[in-house]
Structure formats: structure tokens, C-alpha cells
Simulated assay, not measured.
Amino acid sequence: MESVLVRPMREDDLASVERASAVTFFEAERSTRRVSDPEARPRSAVASQQWIDRMRYYLGVDPGGCWVAVAEESGASEVVGFAVSQNRGPLWILATYGVLPSHQARGIGKRLMDAALRHADGRPGIFSSSVHAGATRRYRLAGFSLHPEMRMVGTVDRSTLPAVHGLQDGRADDFEWMDRLDRDLRLAGHGPDHGYMLDTLRLVVSRDTAKPGYVYIDDRGRASLLAAAHPETARKLLWEALASSQGDTLVNCITTPNEWAIDVGLAARLDIGQEGYIAVRGMPVPAPYLASGHFL
């Protein structure tokens, strides 16, 4: 008979956890796909390696928040669930969480979430949630408020791009004021996460001391994380990201307090849609702010 053990994640689990994650999120995307959405696609080899590298980073920074569920039967072991969370000062974030479809509705997700929340030790928390019914039920029972997210998709009409001034490429010596801004917006700085993101993403900043802000932009010109002290700065930073986009783009994790992002997306001729939730506990929804799905 199969037994399932929930235990701390180890580095030698990473490849198995990635495979479980790829299957779990592919099936979730396919099952919740709307007619207007693109077809769900399996995770590419490059994306799989990036996922593993990111989980290895989390294990190195805060291993106590990283858990796996392992099914054992007839001497064989299989990773069937995972929860990766991190404490950043007074804030807890949930980076990723899931259970293989074949093992859902057995209480495994609750056991994983309980382990991750013990690591939170009562901290306020924030994460980006899918619309999966079982997962959202678990989040609400854990005391999180679920705030619907919107997204903007499409190809930027380049004739709409305004001239943007006052922005520069960011550097590691910007991290100190960026963390102060983070604390104002979401209770805690990103700390070591800034260094990780700077290695993999382009950083653009506004060093205006009255209205500072920053945005990380990926290699396709998509805003991966944006924080600002004022909506005016947030709009400039998002326009900068849109100006560097290539083909179809995405502005994600837009919550109601961040309608400035909707206005920018509509002006760029992007289409608006609804997707998932920002879940928060013990804190307001950050604004002006576009969360990262992984680093929040």
C-alpha cells in the first residue's frame, strides 16, 4: 500500500520536483483554459532548467521553507507534491505549491501547506494563486484574502509609445533604496532576491528621491516585478518595459489598487483578461506594484 511522506526538500530532489511541477501546472493550465486562451504547452527544457536553478537558490537562502511529498510503494519513491516558501524578514512568501493530479484530494496539499505555514511562524504573507478550486479553498482556510488579478496581453501598438525620461539602468548599489521602497510597499525588502534577479533580468530604475521606483524586465520585454513610490513613476517604468517588448507581451498580476497598469495597457492597445488571485494575510495589497509570480 502506498504511503506518502512529507519531508524537507533536498538538492537531490530538484529534478524530480521539477518534473512533478511541470505535470501539475500543465494539467492545471489545460483544465482551466478558456476558449480565448492559447493552447497549454509543456514546459521547455530551458524553462525546466531555470525552474531548477531558482529552486536551488531558494534552498540555499531559506531551506526551512522548502518541502516535498514523496510517495513510496514497493520500494520505489516518487515526488508527488511540493511547497516552496521563503521568509524575508517579517514577510512570508509562497513561491510555488502543487500536488500531482493523480494524488490530489488525499490531504497531501494540506500537509504541505501546514509545513510551509509553520515556517512562516505567524508572519504576514503574500503569494500569487491560480484559480484551482482545491488550492484556493486551502488558502482561504489558512486566513488569506484572495484578490482577483487581471492581465494584459497582445502586441504593443508602437505608435502609442510615449517619450519616457528620467530612467536609468539599475545596479547593485541601488538595492539599499530598493529594499526601503519594498518595505514601504510590502513590509519587507527582497534582500538577496535582488541579486538573483539582477543576474537574470534587466533592471531599470528611477532614482528620483521623491518618486523612486524600479522594474525588472525579462528577455522578451515583459515586466517581471515593478515597484514605485508613486503611480506616475510606475507608469513610466511599465511604458519602458512595453517599449522593449518583442511580439506578444504580457502584463501580469494586476490588482484593483493598481489600475494605473490597466490604463497603460489599454493605451498600448493590449487586451484585458482575468487570471488568478493575489493572496495576502496580515497586509494590504501592495500598490503601486506589480508582483513577481516567484519573488512576489
Rank of each mutant, 00 (worst) to 15 (best):
R151H: 15
R151K: 14
M152V: 01
V153I: 13
V153Y: 13
V153M: 11
G154L: 01
G154N: 06
G154T: 01
V156R: 09
D157Q: 00
D157L: 02
R158S: 03
R158M: 05
R158N: 08
S159H: 03
S159M: 07
T160H: 11
L161R: 07
P162A: 06
P162W: 04
A163F: 08
A163C: 09
V164H: 14
H165D: 14
H165F: 08
H165G: 09
L167M: 09
L167E: 08
Q168T: 06
D169M: 07
G170T: 07
G170N: 11
R171K: 08
R171W: 00
A172P: 07
A172G: 12
D173I: 02
F175S: 04
F175E: 14
E176V: 11
W177T: 02
W177G: 08
M178V: 03
R180L: 14
R180H: 15
D182G: 14
R183P: 06
R183Q: 15
D184Q: 14
L185W: 11
L185M: 10
L187I: 13
A188M: 04
G189Q: 02
H190V: 07
H190Y: 15
G191K: 08
G191L: 14
P192A: 07
D193I: 05
D193A: 14
D193W: 09
H194I: 09
H194F: 11
Y196G: 06
Y196T: 00
M197E: 05
M197G: 04
L198H: 15
T200N: 06
T200A: 07
T200I: 00
L201C: 12
R202C: 02
V204G: 05
V205F: 00
R207P: 01
R207Y: 00
T209K: 12
T209S: 07
T209M: 02
Y214C: 01
Y216R: 03
I217P: 07
I217R: 07
D218R: 05
D218Y: 05
D219C: 02
R220S: 05
R220D: 09
R220Q: 09
G221A: 04
G221E: 12
R222K: 12
R222W: 10
A223S: 15
S224Y: 15
L225Q: 15
L225E: 15
L226H: 13
A228G: 15
A229V: 08
H230M: 04
H230G: 02
E232W: 06
T233A: 08
T233S: 04
A234P: 06
A234M: 03
A234V: 02
A234L: 10
A234Y: 04
A234C: 06
R235Y: 06
R235I: 00
R235H: 09
R235V: 03
L238Q: 10
W239N: 09
E240K: 05
E240D: 12
A243V: 06
A243K: 12
A243G: 05
S245Y: 01
S245H: 04
G247Y: 02
G247T: 04
D248L: 09
T249D: 08
T249E: 10
V251S: 14
V251W: 13
C253K: 14
I254T: 07
I254Q: 13
T255W: 06
T255N: 09
T256R: 14
P257W: 04
N258S: 04
